[in-house]
């Protein structure tokens, strides 16, 4: 094993351990760390769910250079699908798969006509779709519970383990997120995934190399949307109650914002972006109502000076401070 690969796997194991033990109270084991309570763990879980949805946006925006303004709507599709199916007694695993599949199919149906026309029109079509999906969630009370929402969504039993306790559910979501992250990583490293990057860098050249640009764009859009569906399938049992508001258009804007802030086209970008959108407000509670104001202001600064997002900013700072370290970046 080469030194850098060793360092990578060590880092990965360390990160995994930290994420697994973050919410656990370690004082019983003689360590001065109290863990997280119910709410802190809830927020960590929400961060993971948000990151899954953001990964999908990153695939669409960062890797294939398109724009989506409907990720919250796909989250909604996944959340309502899972909620309705599990309430009907169908096992969570099936509901989870159905949520992703439905989002994928809707993504294809939306993408086929939209990609026929010019670049920004996919963004416009997704915007219209986001509003319409939200109207359906609101108005079809017989199905979605309308504005009253759906409550009593059960957390799944996995391999005989009930994930109802907040810590168990966190670990469950962590495991699912890890699998989905691995899938995304594998997909981007495969020859198929490398074509995405080629496509983003130079569509004309990619086309001349025999890559069907439209098919790739369509598939990336649908897969990215499916990640939204998966995130929704996790969101419903996390909150145990869903109503239309988290799936509104303004939320879709926030997903796009967080991916670009984290770093569109960088693998860690969505996690950083989701952390800033979900974890940071908890830290910055003292800023109270001004949080979004400050956030918006910082986003504008970031876009003006470092449109690559925070990941790019960190890399740039590092390159400036440690000229040598910059070279070994993977």
């Amino acid at each position: 094993m080469s030194r850098s690969a060793l360092r990578w796997s060590l880092g990965l194991v360390l990160l995994g351990l930290v994420l697994v033990f973050v919410p656990v109270n370690l004082t019983d084991y003689g360590l001065p760390y109290p863990g997280l309570k119910r709410y802190g763990t809830y927020i960590m879980t929400l961060w993971l769910v948000t990151a899954v949805a953001a990964m999908g946006v990153n695939l669409i925006v960062g890797y294939s250079g398109q724009e989506t303004l409907a990720q919250a709507a796909f989250l909604g599709i996944g959340a309502y699908t899972t909620a309705l199916l599990t309430k009907a007694g169908i096992p969570f695993g099936l509901a989870f798969a159905a949520s992703g599949l439905l989002a994928f199919v809707v993504g294809i149906l939306l993408g086929i006509p939209a990609l026929r026309v010019q670049k920004h029109y996919l963004a416009f079509v997704t915007l219209a779709f986001a509003v319409m999906a939200w109207l359906v969630f609101r108005n079809e009370q017989w199905l979605t519970g309308g504005v009253m929402g759906l409550s009593g969504i059960k957390r799944p039993v996995v391999f005989g383990i009930n994930t109802r306790p907040f810590l168990t559910f966190y670990w469950f979501v962590l495991a699912v997120t890890a699998i989905l992250t691995f899938c995304m990583w594998w997909m981007l490293r495969s020859p198929w995934g490398r074509a995405f990057t080629a496509l983003r860098e130079n569509p004309v050249r990619a086309e001349s190399l025999g890559i069907d640009v439209r098919l790739y764009k369509l598939l990336t859009f649908a897969i990215g949307s499916a990640y939204g569906g998966f995130a929704g399938a996790l969101y419903a049992p996390l909150v145990e109650f869903i109503d239309p508001s988290p799936f509104a258009l303004s939320q879709s804007f926030l997903y796009l914002l967080m991916v670009v802030v984290g770093g569109a086209g960088s693998f860690l970008g969505p996690f950083v972006g989701a952390a800033i959108a979900v974890l940071l407000p908890e830290w910055l509670r003292f800023t109270e109502t001004y949080y979004l104001l400050i956030y918006a202001f910082l986003v504008m600064l970031l876009m003006a000076f470092c449109p690559g997002g925070i990941v790019a900013l960190v890399l740039r700072l590092k390159a400036a401070l440690l000229p040598k370290a910059g070279k070994v970046q993977p």
Partner: peptide, 18 residues
């Protein structure tokens, strides 16, 4: 480029609203 500008106007909208 176009995307950062789009993001920036989205953020500006948020800024003005808040």
């Amino acid at each position: 480029g176009v995307l950062p500008l789009v993001i920036s106007t989205i953020a500006l909208g948020l800024l003005l609203r808040e």
